[in-house]
């Protein structure tokens, strides 16, 4: 899985940080910072939840990421 976030769309609600803190953080300006763009397989469900819960639709996932994920 490959995780991308569009900081031009992000509103800084923080739902991604609450849902998948291993993958997302907020930078000093409050907007999203993807700290693990190729998360391990066991984190993929929480990333998918974060995509659904992102109010602004800023997060996208695609493949492939790291081998085996």
């Amino acid at each position: 899985m490959r995780v991308d976030a569009d900081r031009d769309v992000c509103i800084g609600a923080g739902n991604c940080v609450l849902t998948a803190p291993e993958v997302f953080d907020q930078a000093a300006d409050g907007l999203v910072d993807v700290i693990d763009p190729e998360p391990a397989p066991h984190l993929e469900q929480s990333v998918r939840d974060a995509v659904v819960r992102c109010p602004s639709g800023a997060i996208t996932v695609g493949g492939p990421g790291r081998p085996g994920s």
């Binding site: 509103i11 800084g12 923080g14 940080v17 953080d25 907020q26 000093a28 300006d29 409050g30």
Partner: peptide
């Protein structure tokens, strides 16, 4: 809205 929301967003981050 985007302009104003971004001014206050840093205050309400999860951290």
């Amino acid at each position: 809205h985007t302009w104003l929301r971004r001014l206050v967003a840093p205050t309400f981050t999860v951290k």
